[in-house]
Design a protein around this nucleic acid. Structure first.
Lengths: 155, 155
DNA sequence: GAAGCGCTCATACTTTAGTATGAAATCCGT
DNA sequence: ACGGATTTCATACTAAAGTATGAGCGCTTC
């Protein structure tokens, strides 16, 4: 059966050709995949090892520490610690009693209240107050208060 | 020539088989090479990018900055940094004119002086002063001065 | 527009502050 | 012990502060 034989040869040949072509196509496709996956793979590798390098550098390697010294201004409250101006006070040359009266006077007390407070008569208080005005060079108790506060003569 | 024909067929077959085998072998070798070169390539990539990562971390990465804060006491000038106590001032609910009178009053001025200063009659000043006393809950100008100074109501 | 508030001024009065003068007692230092 | 300073008090007076009441005007708000 040469005809059949010939036909079988032709069939085999065609089959082989088909297989070959299929194989080649498969390989070509595989190469395409491999090429693509290679790019992706290499890219992932690159990213991974870059991160690894950074991690190694930051974690295991000695970190570069720069010490920056910053001066911070701390404003200190002048803690209201009141201090009598002794200098100005001595200039006035007040007597003890006069200074006592001045202290009460600067607190806003009236002559009567000062008298009660120091167990004096109003007359005596008036005398002290008047001499105070002369020594302090003022003409009223209100000016005396203002000056005493300004010069820090009393607490 | 069936024999020749058959022989040519066989030759062609053998040739095709040889080519196929050769192609397959070549592809196998190429795969081997590719596999090997991939390892090498990946290794090189890994090393390169690790080094790149280290370089990035050390060169471009910001160095760790250790900030040392040194507190430096700065003494505030005791320069009369006076500030009016707005809070307490608003509590009193003083009118504009009353506050003007209070400002002069705390400077030790008499009613007559305040009247001159604000171009008012003494009566008007007395009216303002009286209402001031009520609002400030005091009973005399001396107490008003003391309270105003204490609460920092005026300069 | 009526009511309320702020500002002004006035009068009359009371209270307090301030001045002037005098005097007596105490303390301190030379 | 004497003089001077301090402290105390008193009287008499003037000046200023403070109170009370009323009233007029302008403005805003309801």
């Amino acid at each position: 059966m040469p005809l059949l034989y010939k036909a079988r040869h032709s069939l085999l040949y065609g089959l082989l050709m088909a297989i070959l072509v299929f194989a080649l196509k498969w390989l070509q496709w595989k190469f395409l995949i491999v090429d693509h996956s290679l790019d992706i793979y290499v890219g992932l590798i690159a990213v991974f090892f870059t991160i690894l390098g950074v991690w190694v550098a930051t974690q295991l390697g000695r970190p570069a520490i720069r010490t920056v010294i910053v001066e911070k201004a701390v404003y200190v409250q002048p803690v209201e610690e009141f201090s009598v101006n002794e200098t100005e006070l001595k200039k006035l040359n007040l007597s003890n009693r006069e200074y006592e009266v001045l202290q009460l006077l600067t607190k806003g007390l009236s002559n009567a209240e000062i008298a009660d407070n120091l167990c004096l008569s109003i007359s005596t208080v008036k005398t002290h107050v008047s001499s105070l005005f002369v020594k302090m060079d003022v003409k009223s108790r209100t000016q005396a208060i203002e000056k005493a506060k300004r010069l820090k003569l009393t607490a």
